[in-house]
Simulated assay, not measured.
Amino acid sequence: MQQLRTNKQGFLLVDAIIGVLVVAIGLAALAALYTYGIGVMVSADRQEKAVQIAAEKIELLKAADGHSSSDIEDLMMDNIGTDPEKAKSVEIDDIKFYFWGTGRFLQDNNSTGVNQLYYVKVFVKWSDPRIQTISLETYIRTKD
């Protein structure tokens, strides 16, 4: 009996060290997951703001629905810009969002004169910390 007792000395100490180690590893994993989750939430918030900017610019262009394609092009040049190198910008929550658009006139080959569309695509770019870009596109009905 005395021999069994001497072989088990320090067993509780080893159990306690292993238990603390398992708990520490679990807490470290939870902390890493929490940090990652916060980063994803911040990134999603910035992406949502970029989509709102692009949607706002598209709605501005849709106000010209039924006008001529040259009116839409003028609106695009004045309010959105068409050159990514000279992109216009807006700053929201200390983040600078750059936006520009492209557009082209589409005409129905049936020559009915009813389905004349102007294709518009609006881009928004920002750093998060790497460069991110989103785009929204739509068609606008024109009278020409």
Rank of each mutant, 00 (worst) to 15 (best):
A24C: 12
E59N: 15
Y119S: 10
T102G: 12
R5P: 01
W100R: 10
R5D: 04
G103C: 07
A87D: 01
I58W: 03
I18L: 14
M77E: 11
G26L: 11
D15A: 09
A32C: 12
D128S: 14
P129W: 01
Q47S: 12
F11H: 09
E85W: 10
E91A: 11
R141S: 05
Q52C: 04
W126K: 11
S111T: 08
F99Q: 00
D108P: 08
I53L: 06
Y118V: 03
D144Q: 06
A24P: 11
A28G: 14
M76S: 03
D94T: 09
Y34C: 05
R130T: 11
I58D: 00
N109R: 00
V114I: 15
I95H: 03
K57L: 06
E59M: 12
T112Y: 06
M77A: 12
P84K: 04
Q132F: 08
E59W: 14
A44N: 14
S43L: 04
L13N: 06
G10C: 07
M76L: 14
L60E: 03
L33A: 15
R46L: 05
A64G: 11
S43V: 00
N79V: 05
F99C: 00
L30E: 04
A32P: 09
V120P: 01
S68R: 04
F123D: 00
Q107H: 06
K88T: 05
E56A: 14
K121W: 01
M41D: 03
I95G: 01
L136S: 08
V90E: 11
H67W: 04
I140E: 02
V14F: 12
Y119M: 06
Q107M: 04
I17S: 09
Y34I: 09
A87W: 10
A64Y: 12
V22H: 11
E56Q: 13
F11R: 11
K86H: 13
H67A: 02
Q3T: 14
L117V: 05
Y119H: 11
Y98V: 05
F97E: 03
V14W: 08
D144Y: 03
L60K: 07
G10M: 05
V90D: 06
D94M: 02
W126I: 09
K49M: 08
N7W: 06
E56I: 08
A50N: 02
K96I: 14
T6R: 15
V122Y: 02
Y36L: 15
E73N: 04
V122L: 03
N110D: 11
I131A: 14
E59I: 11
Y34D: 05
T35F: 15
S68D: 02
T133V: 13
F11N: 09
M76H: 03
T112V: 07
D15T: 12
D45Y: 07
N109H: 00
A55S: 13
V114D: 10
A29F: 14
A55Q: 14
E48C: 00
I25Y: 12
V23F: 08
E56N: 13
T102Q: 10
Y118A: 03
K57V: 01
L4E: 08
G19T: 10
N115A: 10
N115H: 12
L60R: 10
A87V: 08
I131W: 13
Q52S: 08
Q107N: 07
F11S: 13
A87M: 05
